[in-house]
Amino acid sequence: MTISRTDIEKVAVLARIRVDEEQVSALEKDLGNILDLVDQLSAADTDSVAPMAHPLDAVQRLRADEVTENNEREAFQAIAPATENGLYLVPRVIE
């Protein structure tokens, strides 16, 4: 399975990772190799097999609706790149 430059560019946009022009060829080769490896899956007969999302056949526990968290804004914002008046600051969306 080969992966095209267009695919790589599309996937990089979805994943929000900037890929420079000179990196595309290397990615084309590496991702192509990985997908070749992965393509072995198509050989498996899985017609009557249910997908397995999770190793254990367990059921979700539910939590009681009780407040257990306190205001720890100061501690969390001490490690933030940019905050002001208790808000996290990020650059604007340019449409």
Binding site: E84, G86, L87, Y88, L89, V90, P91, R92
Partner: peptide, 9 residues
């Protein structure tokens, strides 16, 4: 906010 967006979660 100096041209930034504030996020309240």
């Amino acid at each position: 906010f100096h041209g930034m967006t504030g996020i309240d979660l």
